[in-house]
């Protein structure tokens, strides 16, 4: 009798967890393979501030749920584009090579989407080429979303696909910049020194 009762209690305790787990597993991230042309046209109107750092994305960006930063599919596509368009030639695995690192937590032009997107689209001084004519607007945003995760300070729920080769640095969704943050030269005002 006791054994049966124990089993029932066990069942009542475990069942909700199992059912919740199953329900969560059932929820699949919706995937859009194609951003509608009017949306990409609208995204193109995102503007940088005159100083070249920071700015506001077009409103449609928020209206469509900032998918390029939050959606695993877009992050994966961005990761693929990072290789396809030769970014590792200068930026390596994200730690920099001839070009600057994303992983040390220092963003030369700010860590926000518009700054990164503008760096890719229009290029930057000292060797960053413009990809305006080589990538579509959608691809630029996908790549920008991925680059943002390389030097992210916050852990993300969505993760791009794993590397095909050996991982050489912390995964993108584990706040890699916090792990690999480098203090760098400290200025005159030490008390204002950078902390992640």
């Amino acid at each position: 009798m006791n054994a049966v009762k124990g089993r029932t209690v066990l069942f009542v305790v475990i069942a909700p967890f199992v059912l919740t787990g199953a329900a969560l597993g059932w929820l699949r991230e919706s995937r859009s393979y194609r951003t509608a042309p009017p949306v990409t046209a609208e995204l193109e109107t995102s503007r940088l501030l005159p100083i070249g750092i920071g700015g506001a994305p077009a409103e449609v960006y928020f209206a469509s749920g900032s998918v390029y930063e939050k959606d695993a599919y877009n992050l994966s596509q961005g990761k693929r584009l990072y290789d396809w368009f030769g970014c590792p030639a200068c930026h390596g695995d994200g730690r920099g090579k001839n070009g600057p690192s994303f992983l040390d937590g220092w963003w030369l032009y700010g860590p926000d989407m518009v700054s990164i997107m503008a760096s890719i689209r229009n290029g930057r001084p000292h060797g960053m080429p413009a990809f305006r004519d080589r990538m579509t607007e959608e691809q630029i945003w996908q790549l920008a979303g991925y680059v943002e995760t390389i030097g992210a300070y916050k852990a993300l729920i969505a993760a791009p696909s794993r590397n095909d080769g050996i991982h050489t640095r912390p995964s993108e969704n584990r706040a890699p910049a916090v792990i690999l943050f480098e203090q760098g030269p400290v200025g005159n005002r030490r008390e204002q020194g950078p902390t992640p």
Binding site: R31, Y33, R34, T35, P37, T40, A41, R80, M135, T136, E137, E138, Q139
Partner: peptide, 16 residues
């Protein structure tokens, strides 16, 4: 004109 409708998920983007 629209590779993602013909073959969804392939790696060719829609070039306007």
């Amino acid at each position: 004109a629209d590779p993602q409708t013909v073959k969804p998920g392939n790696n060719m983007p829609l070039v306007t």
